[in-house]
Design a protein around this nucleic acid. Structure first.
Lengths: 128, 128
DNA sequence: GCTTGACCTGAACCACACTCCAGCTCGTAG
DNA sequence: CTACGAGCTGGAGTGTGGTTCAGGTCAAGC
């Protein structure tokens, strides 16, 4: 498939796909008359990259992973360790977000209370 | 307290504190001989800003919140809505991260399996 | 053969959130 | 009173992760 199709399937812009190729995240595909022709596996790889990105991994780290992957089986253990590290980071981040959510809930409840008090005051004023 | 102390207490660099003041996130404190003198409440406000930031809120949105806060009670409902919106975003983000964590776990299990197979192959080769 | 739309390249540009710098002033300990 | 560390200002610089642009080339349909 051509880059337009891949862009459509992955949700990444054509520019971003070429950018990812330039920085080494995506293997340079075959070319026909200068145009990139991707094989369907590219979609799965890019989806995985998207997931790594969603975990907050930097493009640089993703590049390191991609490089090891290209080197084959010998790097398998290293790659696993990378993923385990990232997994730990994700769990940490989830914890942090949970704490923030609790704080927000507390603040929101506070605002509700304040608003209730104001309404009450308004009502009293009205009845007076 | 002076800016160095505040920096220490909040974990934000002195430059960042001045930057936050410049963009309107922190009220300009009193000055004595040109130097900023903060009152202890500043720490609590900055901690709250840090929490908002940790949820992924942009400095721009935080500025909007700070502005409304400065305007007083009339903006209370708006501020509550902002926090509620952010709360929803946080929950969404947590869901996304959970999905990523599951994917990583799957990939990691996969690597373990591959490594086990390789070890087995090595053992067989050794025994032969 | 010509038009049209997708694709190509390298390089410049962008927003965000800081971070650093030169060159100055302040204040306090010795 | 002097040294020196902390703080001041305005503005320039940085890193990340793309995005846009100018100026072309390619190929498929009419």
């Amino acid at each position: 498939m051509k880059i337009g199709k891949l862009s459509e399937l992955t949700g990444l812009s054509i520019d971003t796909l070429r950018y990812y190729e330039k920085i080494g995240l995506i293997d340079p595909p075959f070319r026909k008359g200068g145009q990139r022709l991707y094989d369907p596996d590219a979609v799965r790889w890019i989806d995985f990259l998207k997931a790594l990105k969603a975990t907050g991994m930097s493009l640089d780290d993703m590049k390191r992973y991609a490089l090891m992957r290209a080197k084959g089986n010998a790097t398998s253990a290293n790659r696993r360790v990378m993923l385990e590290t990232q997994h730990a980071l994700v769990l940490e981040r989830i914890e942090e977000l949970n704490a923030c959510a609790v704080l927000l809930e507390y603040k929101i409840a506070n605002y509700h209370e304040i608003e209730a008090r104001h309404e009450l005051a308004d009502k009293k004023r009205y009845l007076r």
